[in-house]
């Protein structure tokens, strides 16, 4: 233990293994750094930027920054909390997030982080983009209004399912999740409800067509316990999602 290299995260020593990112090491040590696109089982993406931390005068994403010895990393600062709040607000403003009617409400990691960061409103003008849903699959529904372009589905589909069904397409604000089929519809792919990719979406974009709203308000994942205290989970992952 004492031989293992360490860095400091908010003054706390975090041991790390060679090749670790700051996020991987912190995650293993049970220290929460807010994140949405990071998942310990999949390669890092670095797109949501929620995991920004300060390190030697620079702001970097913890999920892509390699850990190194004697680093002094700061995460829970007033400035970074404010930056994360604004990033979350940008994510809300750029999509169409109607929480009251969303199947994932209460179990949504975007929403849970917003709660945790004290968000009460969007701050930015909502973009109200027009995004096309996909209902072609018999068991799955795609609501792109809620997509945050994190590519977790893409990575899970490739790394866990070995199907590589999901990908990101478009540019800029028109970036969107797409599917590897000739007609571009999910229903024409080999996607199955049991796939890992069907159960990795941190928001309510990839959903089963049935069995939604199983829990009453108050009994859902993030109704009582904030995300920083229990980590990024989904209600259908048996508590293993983020471990």
């Amino acid at each position: 233990m004492s031989d293992q290299p360490q860095f400091q995260l908010d003054g706390q020593p975090i041991p790390f293994q060679p090749g670790d990112t700051i996020m991987q090491a912190a995650h293993r040590a049970g220290v929460y750094i807010p994140h949405l696109c990071f998942h310990p089982q999949f390669r890092p993406h670095g797109s949501c930027r929620l995991c920004v931390v300060n390190m030697q005068g620079k702001t970097v994403s913890a999920c892509t920054q390699p850990a190194s010895i004697d680093l002094e990393v700061h995460s829970e600062t007033t400035e970074l909390r404010q930056s994360r709040l604004r990033l979350i607000q940008l994510l809300f403003a750029e999509g169409n997030h109607f929480c009251p009617s969303c199947e994932t409400s209460g179990n949504c990691q975007l929403q849970a982080l917003a709660y945790d960061l004290g968000m009460t409103h969007y701050h930015y003008d909502p973009f109200y983009p027009t995004r096309i849903p996909d209902g072609s699959h018999p068991e799955l529904f795609i609501d792109r209004d809620r997509c945050i372009q994190c590519d977790l589905c893409g990575r899970a589909s490739e790394q866990a399912d070995h199907k590589a069904i999901y990908l990101l397409a478009g540019r800029g604000q028109h970036t969107h999740v797409a599917f590897r089929s000739d007609d571009g519809e999910l229903g024409s792919t080999q996607a199955q409800a049991e796939d890992r990719a069907s159960h990795v979406c941190p928001v309510g974009c990839i959903l089963p067509k049935s069995g939604n709203y199983p829990d009453i308000a108050g009994a859902r994942l993030y109704d009582q316990i904030p995300i920083h205290a229990q980590g990024n989970h989904r209600r259908d992952d048996g508590g293993t999602h983020d471990d």
């Binding site: 670095g46 797109s47 949501c48 930027r49 929620l50 990033l87 940008l90 994510l91 403003a93 750029e94 930015y124 003008d125 973009f127 945050i148 372009q149 478009g170 540019r171 800029g172 604000q173 028109h174 970036t175």
Partner: peptide, 21 residues
């Protein structure tokens, strides 16, 4: 805004929000 690649939140959404501002 037009040239943002759309990968990360602050640029993808921030460039649009900036134009709104």
């Amino acid at each position: 805004q037009h040239e943002s690649c759309g990968f990360c939140t602050p640029c993808r959404a921030g460039t649009v929000a900036m134009n709104h501002l």
